[in-house]
C-alpha cells in the first residue's frame, strides 16, 4: 500500500516536471510548478524530512508561486501576445540529452545503492555532539552549530538578492499590479482579521518549535512573509523605492546578529562561529526570522522598501 503511494508520488513528480517544461502556455507552466512544489513537500515528508517539507511548501510552492504569478500578470500587461505563445523550442538534441542525463542519474543511483555507509560518518558524530547541547532537533543543530557558515552565508545571499532587486528597479516606477488598490470587499477584511493574527501565531510557534521539532527561522520567516504577501495583494501595503530606517535595520538584523554572536568565541578561547548555548540560539533565530520575512516580502513586491497604504 505504501509502496503504491510512493510509486504514485514519483510518477506524479515526473509527470508534473514534464508538464512544467513542455510549456503549452506560460500560465499553465506556472500553475504546474506550484503543484509540483506542493507534491514535492508531500514527498519530503514521506522521506522523513518534515523540515524540508515545510520549507518547500512555504518557499518553493507558496512564495515563489505567488511571485511567478505576479510576474506573469506583468508580462501579459506589457505583451498580451505572450499568453498564448508556446515556450517550447524543439531541438534535435533534446531527446538524446534527456536520455543521457536519465542514464547518468540511474547509473549513479545504482552505484550509490551498492555503497555501504561508512562507519565514522559526520552524521553520527553530529548526533552524538547534539546530546551535549540544549537543542534536540538535529536539523536546527546542523544549521546553527555545525554548519553555521552555510546559514550565515545563506542570509548574505538573501540580502544580496534584495540589493539586486533594489538596484534594477526602475527610477520612474510604473504602477505594479501590487501597487494598485483593489476594490475593498468585506470578505477580504474579515479574512485578514482572522488570518493575520493566526499567521503571526504560527510563525512564532514554528520559531519556538525549531529547537526540538521541525521548524525554525526559515520556515517561520517564510510564513511571516506570506502574511506580508497577503497584505500587499489586498492593497494594505505598497512598494517604495527606498526602505525606511527601521526596514534597513530589519533587513541586516539576521546577518549582523549572527555574525556578532558568532565572533565572540575568541574572547572565551573558543573558535570563531562558536555559539553560546540557549538564549543566543533563540536570539539568532529570531533575528534571522525577521530578516528572512522582510527580504522575501520585498523580493515579492520587487521593491526597495514597503509602506503602509493609508485607506
Amino acid at each position: 500500500m505504501t509502496l503504491a503511494l510512493d510509486i504514485l508520488l514519483a510518477l506524479g513528480l515526473l509527470w508534473l516536471g514534464w508538464q512544467v517544461v513542455s510549456g503549452r502556455a506560460l500560465f499553465r507552466s506556472i500553475v504546474m510548478l506550484i503543484v509540483l512544489g506542493l507534491l514535492m513537500a508531500v514527498v519530503w515528508s514521506r522521506l522523513g524530512a518534515p523540515d524540508l517539507a515545510l520549507a518547500e511548501a512555504a518557499v518553493g510552492a507558496a512564495v515563489t508561486g505567488a511571485m511567478l504569478l505576479l510576474a506573469y500578470r506583468r508580462i501579459i500587461e506589457l505583451r498580451p501576445e505572450r499568453a498564448h505563445q508556446s515556450l517550447l523550442r524543439r531541438s534535435r538534441l533534446a531527446a538524446p540529452l534527456a536520455l543521457l542525463c536519465g542514464a547518468l542519474v540511474m547509473g549513479l543511483g545504482f552505484e550509490l545503492l551498492k555503497l555501504s555507509s561508512p562507519a565514522d560518518s559526520a552524521g553520527a558524530a553530529a548526533l552524538a555532539a547534539m546530546q551535549q547541547s540544549e537543542l534536540s532537533n538535529p536539523v536546527t543543530g546542523v544549521l546553527l552549530l555545525f554548519r553555521g557558515y552555510d546559514t550565515l552565508l545563506e542570509m548574505g545571499v538573501l540580502l544580496a538578492a534584495w540589493l539586486g532587486v533594489k538596484m534594477v528597479q526602475p527610477a520612474e516606477r510604473q504602477e505594479l499590479p501590487v501597487s494598485r488598490t483593489p476594490l475593498p470587499t468585506y470578505l477580504t477584511d474579515a479574512l485578514l482579521a482572522v488570518v493575520i493574527p493566526g499567521v503571526v501565531l504560527v510563525a512564532g510557534y514554528l520559531l519556538h518549535a525549531g529547537g526540538s521539532a521541525p521548524g525554525g527561522a526559515f520556515q517561520a520567516g517564510a510564513v511571516l512573509a506570506g502574511a506580508g504577501v497577503l497584505l500587499a495583494l489586498t492593497g494594505r501595503l505598497r512598494p517604495t523605492p527606498e526602505p525606511s530606517q527601521l526596514q534597513r535595520i530589519a533587513l541586516a538584523l539576521g546577518v549582523v546578529t549572527f555574525a556578532a554572536i558568532a565572533s565572540v568565541g575568541p574572547l572565551f578561547g573558543k573558535p570563531v562561529m562558536w555559539l553560546p548555548e540557549g538564549w543566543a540560539l533563540y536570539v539568532i533565530e529570531g533575528a534571522m526570522t525577521i530578516s528572512i520575512a522582510l527580504c522575501l516580502l520585498l523580493l515579492f513586491i520587487s521593491a526597495g522598501g514597503v509602506q503602509r497604504r493609508e485607506p
Partner: peptide, 13 residues
C-alpha cells in the same frame, strides 16, 4: 475551518 475560510474568500474573489 482554515480550509473553508480560505476557499470561501478565494472563490468569492
Amino acid at each position: 475551518l482554515l480550509g473553508i475560510t480560505a476557499s470561501t474568500v478565494s472563490a468569492h474573489l
